[in-house]
Design a protein around this nucleic acid. Sequence first.
DNA 1: CAGTTGACTGTTA
DNA 2: GTAACAGCCAACT
Length: 105
Amino acid sequence: MDSNKPFNQQCYDLLRQIPKGKVVTYADIAHQLGGKAYQAVGNAMANNPDVIVVPCHRVVNSNGAIGKYALGTEKKIALLQEEGIELDTEKNKVLNLDKQRHTFL
DNA sequence: CAGTTGACTGTTA
DNA sequence: GTAACAGCCAACT
């Protein structure tokens, strides 16, 4: 395992594994890392070390809300729509979250 | 080492 | 459906 790397680094690795047109929740990432560090995951994104290397825009809240984005929530929405993800631009939420949610195998 | 922070989640009302 | 409270973890100060 990557227990050698810091927690936030593991989050970035997982984010990079997300294919285009898919999204994940903070809880899923934290749970995949073997814990409930949803806050820690958000903290890693908040640090936003590499917006180019890590597709932070593919991460959404468990309730389907898009949440925030370093470059701006509006930018995040635009990117998600570009990827083919259906969103509710009226409420900034993800549609069919369960269907578009990516699972780490 | 203790306290604060944060792009959060889940439960209860 | 929304609101409020409590719990949680890692990193920073």
